[in-house]
């Protein structure tokens, strides 16, 4: 049991700001044993930017007080920890005043208000597939209000969040989906089967397929052919892919490899678990406890060591702005208020 004593400021709706004032509250801190074996797979910042939620391998979602202004002076503090899923929480998304969590079982939609008032209960459930199947990644199309989810059964589900109905299902991969990424009016998906498919979301058809393991510069047979992460830049002209094959920058339209993203570490081959465009550079995290930075022409800019040995997710506070939130194996969350050096580290 751990105690938490604090005040939190506000949960903002799009139009209203609800002021909440709580004096003190004892929350259930995770047991030491759980902390020892904890892996944080996902993180999400609330739309108001005040709270940070992280999901771990035990199905718990921990909520932290994440005040951007006071970040330099005080560390974010743990507010609440609640059990969301029976299995690992692979993906979290903060949309408007809701938190969407996905993992084992259905997609759950929570209200931030309920979470910070210590009464978390899912307001909606989006049934995807069987109760034993997991959802590994989520993606949100703000323009159309669509929620995309990559599912263990190698399909991609699309829900219309305006009426919470399932509208489409994309099938074509042969193994589970690792990551999905929204392009201008299409969707890119990376899968365990080693393929990256680009889907036309209007007619549910796969338009292009990339197989990075076919490229000799990228091939790493001992690591397999799976693709673990995909991300696109703001113009959606370029995407980065990585996994068993080495990470590389690809041109979307021509589906051709433009530049391999090299890592300076010779001793250990870098396996990326998450890649992102940040401004005009590419950031990525993986198995070597470093935040990698590449310029848009493929040169490695820096590799900044951090406290997380394997980085599973890099998240930005809001719309590609710092701080960057890194999570992975271990019970720690690493923040980067500046990409040049390690920022504060929070323990769950």
């Amino acid at each position: 049991m751990g105690g938490y004593f604090g005040l939190f400021v506000a949960v903002s709706d799009e139009t209203n700001i609800y002021k909440f004032l709580f004096c003190f509250r004892f929350t259930l801190k995770m047991e030491q044993r759980h902390l020892l074996h904890c892996t944080v797979y996902s993180s999400a910042v609330s739309a108001c930017g005040e709270f940070l939620a992280v999901g771990n391998n035990f199905g718990d979602v921990s909520v932290l007080d994440f005040n951007l202004k006071s970040l330099s002076s005080s560390k974010p503090k743990l507010i609440n920890c609640f059990s969301a899923h029976i299995g690992p929480v692979y993906a979290l998304l903060g949309i408007n005043n809701t938190l969407i969590s996905a993992g084992l079982g259905p997609v759950l939609i929570w209200n931030w208000k309920d979470i910070v008032s210590f009464d978390p209960k899912p307001v909606h459930k989006l049934e995807a597939c069987g109760p034993k199947a997991s959802i590994t990644c989520l993606c949100y199309d703000k323009k159309h209000g669509l929620l995309f989810a990559g599912i263990e059964d190698s399909s991609i589900m699309i829900w219309d969040l305006s009426n919470l109905s399932c509208c489409k299902k994309l099938t074509g991969h042969t193994q589970y989906i690792h990551d999905i990424c929204l392009l201008s009016d299409s969707l890119a998906s990376a899968s365990e089967d080693g393929l990256v498919k680009i889907w036309d979301t209007h007619n549910n058809k796969c338009t292009k397929t990339i197989k990075p393991s076919n490229w000799n510069e990228l091939k790493r047979p001992s690591l397999g052919s799976w693709i673990g992460c995909v991300a696109s830049d703001s113009s959606t002209e370029w995407i980065v892919l990585g996994g068993g094959p080495a990470p590389a920058l690809w041109h979307t339209r021509s589906t051709s490899m433009a530049l391999p993203l090299n890592s300076s570490n010779e001793a250990q081959s870098f396996i990326p678990f998450t890649l992102h465009f940040y401004g005009d550079e590419i950031v990525g995290g993986g198995n070597d406890s470093m935040l990698h930075r590449w310029t848009s022409n493929g040169e490695q800019k820096a590799a900044v060591p951090c406290a997380i040995s394997n980085i599973f997710s890099i998240n930005f506070a809001s719309e590609n702005s710092l701080p960057a939130i890194l999570t992975g194996t271990g019970h720690k969350i690493q923040l980067f208020t500046n990409l040049g050096y390690e920022g504060p580290c929070i323990s769950l």
Binding site: Y41, Y90, S134, T136, E152, Y176, E192, G228
Partner: peptide, 9 residues
């Protein structure tokens, strides 16, 4: 039936 699962495979 499945050799690997999740981001950590």
């Amino acid at each position: 039936p499945l050799i690997a699962k999740g981001p950590a495979r």
